[in-house]
Amino acid sequence: MHKVKAKGILSATNGMNIYRGCQHGCIYCDARSKCYQMNHRFEDIEVKENAPKLLENALKRKRRKCMIGTGAMSDPYIPLEKELKLTRKCLEIIDRYGFGVTVHTKSASVMRDIDLFTKINDKSKAVLQMTLTTADESLCRIIEPNVSVTKERFETLKVFHENGIPSVVWFSPFLPFINDTKENIDGLLKYCIDAKVRGIICFGIGLT
Score class of each variant (00 low, 15 high):
L128G: 07
K125I: 05
S138Q: 09
K123V: 03
E152M: 07
T118Y: 14
L116K: 13
L139M: 06
E152K: 09
N163V: 03
Q129G: 12
L128V: 02
S124D: 07
E152G: 06
L132C: 08
G164C: 04
F117D: 02
I165Q: 01
L132I: 10
I143M: 11
F154E: 13
T156P: 14
D136Q: 09
G164H: 10
V147N: 14
K158P: 03
L128T: 01
S138R: 14
N121F: 02
P145M: 06
T131K: 08
I120A: 12
D115V: 09
K125W: 06
D122R: 08
D136C: 11
I120C: 04
K158W: 05
F154N: 02
F117K: 03
I165S: 03
L139G: 02
F154Q: 08
T131C: 12
V147L: 13
L116A: 06
K119R: 14
D136G: 09
V147D: 10
D115W: 07
C140F: 14
V147K: 10
K151G: 10
F154K: 11
N146W: 09
N163I: 03
D136A: 05
V147S: 15
T131W: 10
H161S: 11
S148I: 08
C140P: 00
K158S: 07
K151I: 07
F117Y: 10
L128F: 00
P145A: 04
T133K: 02
T131R: 06
T118Q: 14
R141K: 15
V147I: 15
V159Y: 14
T134K: 02
T156K: 12
D122N: 13
N146A: 10
D122G: 07
L128M: 11
I142L: 13
I143C: 01
R141P: 01
L157G: 08
F160P: 03
N121C: 06
L157I: 05
M130W: 00
I120L: 07
I142C: 08
K125C: 09
E144D: 07
K158C: 15
G164A: 09
C140W: 05
E144A: 03
F160S: 05
S138N: 08
T156G: 15
L157D: 09
N163C: 06
A126N: 03
N146C: 12
I143K: 04
V159Q: 15
I142E: 13
T156Y: 12
R153L: 08
K151N: 13
N163H: 15
V147H: 09
D136K: 11
M130H: 03
T150I: 08
I120K: 10
E152I: 01
R141S: 12
K151R: 12
S124R: 15
E162L: 12
I142D: 10
K123R: 13
L128P: 08
T134Y: 01
E144I: 08
M130V: 09
M130G: 01
N163Y: 07
T118E: 15
R141I: 00
H161Y: 15
L128Q: 03
H161V: 00
L139K: 07
L157P: 06
P145E: 02
K158V: 10
K119T: 02
P145F: 03
E155P: 05
T118R: 14
F160A: 00
N146K: 07
N146E: 11
